[in-house]
Amino acid sequence: MTTPPADTVADTAPAAGPAALELADVRKVYGAGDTEIVAVDHATLRVGDGEIVALLGPSGSGKTTLLSIAGGLLSATQGRVVVGGEDITGHSAAELTDFRRSKVGFVFQSVNLVPFLTAEENLLVVSELSGARGGARKQAKARAKELLGELGLAHRAGNLPAQLSGGERQRVAIGRALFNGPALVLFDEPTSALDTKIGEQVMELIQAEMRSRHTAAVIVTHDTRMTHYADRTVRIVDGVLGAEPVEGDLAAH
């Protein structure tokens, strides 16, 4: 188990050096006029290469919104978003689609798998979307097998999602998110549908996979028991990123 680093304060100013994710003064407003909701307000966040950040906050605090902006699913109302050196702030919808396919990995809260594809095919779909043909396709197949083996799913490769348990499904989703070799993987409450024990196993797996690939991750959670798998925890309340350290981190001091 990894001990969180000493510095647990969310840096409000981007530091120097390579960064997997840089959010600068990002603001997201839903609706307009009377019904206007500020979901994320002046958020500035830097996630270094290979760094695992837990984003902790109560329900409705803007976690998913922030994650979606970081992953190019949603455009910010204001502010700058740079992922793996690519500034996606002004990207068109089509550019964002390309970006999501090649630069980031997602694990969503609910639907993560295509029901009519097997576990292996759910990974391969990523390379198919990038138009893999011939040799590339063969390579992708080998990679999918390897990755599923790593995730302990070798024997489940040919099963449809409906035939998998919740934990297995989440592991397939992790494999899918890693398949395009992204610099950043975004997890939205990856364990919320799992019981504690399975949830912890999944978190361990995430941590190990990120470390071994030196891949950065943002893991959204509202469960403080999960934050110790991260290098650093960032709090969010009412759309505002907070600097106060969480209990677990204080204890580590």
């Binding site: 689609t97 396919r101 798998l113 779909v125 990523v126 979307l129």
Partner: peptide, 17 residues
């Protein structure tokens, strides 16, 4: 299969595809 289609769009499938 709207759910699956949404997922595919989210992970980078162009609508045209």
């Amino acid at each position: 299969k709207a759910g699956a289609l949404t997922l595919l769009r989210a992970i980078g499938a162009p609508a045209g595809l």
